[in-house]
């Protein structure tokens, strides 16, 4: 996985957000780390799922809300808006999709 530290400084100013998924999701569906454009968690994730719709059904429910036992961080912050996914994402931010410890 390529993290922020691996990027050259001149790339940071134009870097798209980077999205990574829990290892446990890889058992079910292909989900490599990838860059995706967007200014909100919604925009970033929907850009990822546009190319991989099946992955979207694992992370979002029928109403495109975050599944109850999935959690998303932007850098070190857990997102607040689990329904609308309106939390802001900036250039070069890292978006992590994890499974919550509930629901296991």
């Amino acid at each position: 996985m390529t993290g922020l530290a691996d990027r050259r400084p001149e790339e940071d100013s134009v870097a798209m957000p980077r999205v990574s998924f829990t290892e446990n999701l890889k058992r079910h569906v292909d989900c490599p780390p990838q860059d995706a454009a967007g200014g909100t968690v919604r925009a970033v994730l929907e850009n990822v799922f546009a190319d991989n719709p099946r992955l979207g059904t694992y992370v979002l429910d029928d109403q495109r809300r975050l599944r109850k036992h999935v959690t998303v961080f932007v850098n070190r912050e857990m997102i607040a808006d689990r329904e609308g996914l309106s939390d802001a994402v900036g250039e070069g931010d890292e978006v992590f999709v994890f499974q919550a410890l509930s629901g296991g």
Binding site: N24, L25, T57, R67, G103
Partner: peptide, 25 residues
């Protein structure tokens, strides 16, 4: 799935191999 929702799979070879289908939603 505890975290990732309901899923549907189909096998047409007696369970040797499976393919995921779109689940009811």
């Amino acid at each position: 799935l505890g975290h990732f929702g309901q899923k549907l799979h189909r096998s047409r070879d007696g369970g040797t191999s499976w393919e995921e289908l779109e689940a009811p939603k």
